[in-house]
């Protein structure tokens, strides 16, 4: 039964991917990309990767779709040119796939607990997490503490993308760019004139925010953490913006607050790391943050996850507003 289900999901994945590449309508392609992300998230889930499934669903299916649609609104929806050099591209791709397939022949058996990948480092994490950090979610323990330096880098990748998009979309526009749509006064803003989205959306927004906060602070006990929470909270605000309009959303959470979130979150992570140095140990060593090293580890993880959530929320919302604002005047 499980095998059938797995095969079904995977086949659907391939069909969706082919459909995405073949369609000439970019709106359709983006929607299918959302479905593709959800299918991958489902695959992750049945492969026991709960955190990753949550992240892929929130970030890949959710935020990514919003960003692509935002870009499509500013560019064009149709792919005009037919693919040139089709045969050559197919040939290159076929050769490359044969090379990669070659690699899979000697790989260890799927699911084998004695495979090299499950020896050495992984059992150490499973064994030592209760002793050093004592939280149920091992993925958060590894992400937040054992490999916390990678996560610091990751926060700064997000931060870089945020300032990058803000930088690019703050440029004065060239000659061909100006959109002449002036909104007549009193015109409908957002989806206010549509009753169903408005009512349902207004009901959903507080629940999404609450769920985002839950995911943020329960990342140690179940799937969750800063990245997923940041994406969810940003999604709540984006939904609000779609319904009530962008200006209203900026009144609720202005750009200066978003800047503070972006910068503050990244710095919070860095300061927690430096606290380890000032308290006599190494950078990002949380054991010295409290009298009991295990509590110190837990406190450290809570703080850095908060920093992550802040930066991700700030960046994703700033990017959304940057795209939305480019559409006005």
């Amino acid at each position: 039964m499980k095998v059938l289900f797995g095969v079904f999901l995977l086949t659907l994945l391939v069909i969706t991917a082919v459909a995405i590449v073949r369609t000439k309508n970019l709106f359709v392609a983006v929607m299918l990309l959302g479905i593709f992300s959800l299918l991958i998230a489902a695959n992750f889930f049945i492969l026991d990767a709960a955190d990753v499934a949550l992240t892929e669903a929130a970030v890949g299916a959710g935020i990514s779709t919003v960003l692509f649609l935002g870009a499509l609104a500013l560019t064009s929806e149709h792919e005009r040119t037919a693919t040139p050099h089709r045969l050559l591209s197919f040939a290159v791709v076929t050769v490359a796939s044969l090379v990669v397939l070659y690699a899979t022949f000697d790989k260890p058996t799927f699911g084998d607990p004695n495979a090299p990948v499950h020896q050495h480092v992984a059992p150490w994490y499973l064994e030592k997490t209760p002793e050093y950090i004592d939280i149920p979610n091992v993925v958060t323990a590894v992400l937040g503490s054992f490999r916390g330096y990678d996560t610091l880098g990751e926060v700064f990748v997000v931060f870089t993308a945020g300032i990058g998009v803000l930088f690019l979309l703050s440029a004065r526009r060239g000659p061909s760019g100006r959109r002449q749509t002036a909104e007549p006064p009193g015109a409908a803003v957002g989806l206010r004139h549509d009753v169903i989205p408005r009512v349902v959306g207004r009901l959903l927004v507080p629940f999404i925010l609450l769920f985002g906060l839950y995911v943020q602070f329960h990342g140690e006990y179940g799937p969750g953490g800063g990245f997923q929470a940041g994406a969810l909270i940003a999604a709540a605000f984006i939904l609000y913006a779609l319904i009530e309009g962008e200006e209203q959303t900026l009144r609720a959470l202005p750009q200066s607050a978003l800047n503070a979130l972006m910068v503050g979150g990244a710095l919070l992570y860095g300061v927690v790391g430096l606290a380890g140095v000032f308290l006599g140990s190494n950078f990002l060593d949380y054991s010295v943050l409290a009298s009991n090293p295990v509590s110190g580890q837990q406190m450290g993880i809570i703080l850095i996850e908060a920093g992550v959530g802040m930066t991700v929320t700030g960046v994703l919302l700033s990017i959304f507003h940057a795209f939305a604002a480019r559409d006005r005047a």
Partner: peptide, 11 residues
């Protein structure tokens, strides 16, 4: 050793 964790368990 970052975080006080020695490689290969830490970075």
């Amino acid at each position: 050793a970052l975080g006080g964790w020695e490689a290969p368990f830490g970075i």
